[in-house]
Amino acid sequence: MTAPQLKEPRTPSGRSRNNAEKWSWVFMRVSGPILLVLIVTHLFVNLMTGDGISQIDFAFVAGKLAHPFWQWFDFTMLVLAMLHGFNGMRLLINDYARRPGSRKLLHSLLGTATLVVIVLGTLVLFTFDPCPAGADPDLLPTFCEDVA
């Protein structure tokens, strides 16, 4: 039996060319802590301040979404959470889907779902009408009276 052939040392080519997997890893590392802060803040504001869970109704959500700060807060949370989840699922598919066909199918399903949720969510966040015409005033946020 002959000794297995060792690879010839390559001439240094500087830095790696394909860094996609590296950036995917860095993204997970960065978005994780940011999401932690965003989600804990989201839960705290919604559930711990004011009347707690009983305050959540249409008026509460509409009041929040009428403010640009919460629009951008929710937008950041939406995009980061979806991309973080997308990337995690992508890695799981890479690890566990063996056949190239099923891998491709699962990847396209995942990409479609991610895109649909991000687009729909963004649309709602920025086109939301907190004071729909003809609605019961008791259900609307207080500032709707000034508008009407």
């Binding site: 790696s16 394909n18 997997e21």
Partner: peptide, 17 residues
């Protein structure tokens, strides 16, 4: 030979797995 080895490990099947 650090970068030769790091390039190999930066591959799809490398440390990021």
């Amino acid at each position: 030979g650090q970068w030769e080895r790091l390039e190999v490990l930066n591959d799809k099947a490398g440390v990021w797995k």
